[in-house]
Amino acid sequence: MTSQTRPPVTPVRASGTAADRTSGVRRHSPTGRAVTYVLLVVALLVTLLPFAWMVLGSFKTQAELTADPNGFLPDAPTFANYRQWLVDLDIGRFFGNTLLVAVVTVAGNLVFCSMVGYALAKMEFAGKRVLLALVLGMLMIPSTVTFIPLFVTVSRLGLVNSYGGLILPFLANAIGVFLMRQFMSDIPDSLIEAARIDGAGEFRIFSRIVLPLCGPALATLAILTFLFSWNNFLWPLVVAQNEDRFTLPVAISLYSTGQNASNYGLLLAGAVLVVTPIVLLFLALQRYFIQGIASTGIK
């Protein structure tokens, strides 16, 4: 196994057995590797335990959860908790709000961030350094600092409790611009110069030549933005003031602190409904997720 990633090395004579030598210098004794595997498996089980408990608990009745709060398998599995969310509490509208906000936010970021990224990567213009400095400066400003005056701005624009208020502040962001700029910088200038000489306008070059080459960066940006938007909490909590605009995290948090605070089964089912779509998306696209972390360092 180690030999797959190990570059060829010259065997070194020092301590150790001949068997160690042939398996490469950075060898790992079978026991050592077994111990590593065991520890990793234990760590993995501990990591995933809360998810297992969440899913199993969501099929239990309140009576069972109260009687045995640390059990795993449900005695008599029930869909009552899910029925209550889907029918009585109409979780569909929160789901729809979250999805709408996430999809529009993703679309906006793909368009706006790649446009700025293109200008910064492939055009020479007055004020370029200022623009780049602004983008980098924005990366440093934490959202907790801006949410109060942002709320004042949004109220003055009459956007409290509206989709506009939920979406507009996140329609473009500096990390996205930075990601697109980095990726576009690697596209050969000759390709773009050739198109300019052929008389193609900048927008045509951007949309017909550069964007089609940016698939992986756009995928990463789309996924990271979707993830951010789906899980975003503080701002929707502040700006969505009626149930008709609640997103899933806001709805869950209000139910979990209100009169249902000790209705374990219901809340676990709610958590499953919020977490499952994003985990499935992650499992399907995990390569892009991890690529995104590695290239931007954000979560």
């Binding site: 909490f233 869950i252 994003i278 992650f282 995990q286």
Partner: peptide, 26 residues
């Protein structure tokens, strides 16, 4: 020297990151 199941481990340990803090706090 972890070759087998490397992706499984990586994905497993990363999964908590993608979950909503609010939902998982519940």
């Amino acid at each position: 020297g972890i070759g087998r199941f490397r992706t499984v481990f990586r994905v497993g340990f990363y999964t908590p990151v993608v979950t909503s803090i609010v939902a998982i706090s519940v």
